[in-house]
C-alpha cells in the first residue's frame, strides 16, 4: 500500500469510535431512563457515523477493493488499533459514563487539533465530529458530576469506576509509528502535547463531582499495537457475526 502510514493512522482514530459505538449500542433499550437511553443511543449513532466517514476514506486509500464494512468487520483481533479504554464493558452506568467521559475529553481535544490537519478529508471529518463530540463531552461530564455529587451510593460507584478505568487513560498519549510519520507530514496530531491539558481538565470535572483523582501511576497499554484486553474478542464476535457467517454478500 502506497499510503500505509495514513491508512494505519485513520484506523487508529476510527477504531476508537467503532468499538465505543458498539459498546454504547449494547445498551439500547436497557438504560436507567428513557432520556438516558436515547442519549446513549445517540452517542452510538454519532460514533458509527464517524466510523463510516473514516473507513470510506481508508477504503479509498487502501485501493484494493475492500469496503468500509470489510475494514470494520473483517480484521482479526490483533489488527484492531483502538485504545483499551473503549473496549471495557458496560459494568454499570457509572462505568459506562466514566468510560465515556474519560474518552470524550481526549476525543474532543484530539479532534480540535485534527481540524488543522493538512489532509483536507481528515480536517473536514474532524470539523463535523467536533460538534457531536462537544455534546458527548457535555453529557458525560454532567453525568459524572451528577453521580459523583448525588447520593452516597452513586458517589461510591462513580469513584470505583474512575479508579478502575484510570489505568487506561495514559495510552491516549502514546505515539505509534504511523502517528509519528503523520505528525511529520502535518497530517496527524501530536498526542503527546495533549496530555497535560487532558489531566487538568479531567481533574477539574472530577473535583467538581467530588470524586478523588486517582493517584496511581501504573498504566496499561497495548491497544494501539493490537494487544487488547480479554473483552475485545467477545465484542468482535458480535460485530463480525454476520460478515463471518455469510461472507461476500450484500445487505
Amino acid at each position: 500500500m502506497k499510503n500505509e502510514n495514513l491508512y494505519n493512522y485513520i484506523l487508529g482514530i476510527a477504531d476508537n469510535s467503532l468499538i465505543l459505538g458498539q459498546r454504547m449500542g449494547e445498551l439500547c433499550g436497557h438504560g436507567p431512563s428513557l432520556e438516558t437511553d436515547i442519549a446513549c443511543t445517540n452517542i452510538s449513532l454519532d460514533l458509527f457515523g464517524q466510523v463510516r466517514s473514516y473507513f470510506q476514506y481508508a477504503s479509498k486509500i487502501a485501493g484494493d477493493g475492500r469496503t468500509e464494512d470489510d475494514i470494520a468487520m473483517l480484521r482479526k483481533e490483533r489488527e484492531y488499533k483502538n485504545v483499551l479504554l473503549v473496549e471495557q464493558p458496560n459494568t454499570d452506568f457509572a462505568y459506562t459514563l466514566g468510560r465515556q467521559f474519560l474518552f470524550d475529553v481526549y476525543h474532543l481535544a484530539f479532534l480540535k487539533e485534527l481540524q488543522k490537519s493538512t489532509d483536507l478529508t481528515l480536517s473536514a471529518i474532524a470539523n463535523k465530529c467536533v460538534k457531536e463530540v462537544s455534546y458527548h463531552e457535555r453529557f458525560s461530564s454532567d453525568w459524572v458530576k451528577r453521580l459523583g455529587d448525588g447520593t452516597s451510593e452513586s458517589k461510591e460507584k462513580m469513584q470505583e469506576a474512575i479508579n478502575d478505568l484510570w489505568t487506561y487513560t495514559d495510552e491516549f498519549f502514546h505515539q505509534t509509528d504511523a502517528d509519528k510519520a503523520m505528525v511529520v507530514e502535518g497530517i496527524g496530531v501530536d498526542v503527546t502535547k495533549l496530555k497535560d491539558s487532558y489531566y487538568k481538565e479531567v481533574s477539574q470535572v472530577l473535583e467538581e463531582a467530588t470524586i478523588q483523582v486517582p493517584e496511581s501511576k501504573y498504566f496499561q497499554k497495548g491497544g494501539k499495537q493490537g494487544i487488547h484486553t480479554e473483552h475485545l474478542g467477545y465484542l468482535l464476535s458480535d460485530l463480525q457475526y454476520m460478515q463471518r457467517t455469510y461472507p461476500n454478500m450484500e445487505w
Binding site: C28, L45, W251
Partner: peptide, 22 residues
C-alpha cells in the same frame, strides 16, 4: 444492533430504535 451486517444497516437500525424511544 450489535450484529447488524453492515455499518449502513447498523446506523439505520440504531436510528430506528431511537425513534421508537422518542
Amino acid at each position: 444492533i450489535t450484529r447488524a451486517p453492515s455499518l449502513r444497516r447498523k446506523v439505520a437500525l440504531l436510528a430506528k430504535v431511537q425513534d421508537e424511544a422518542g
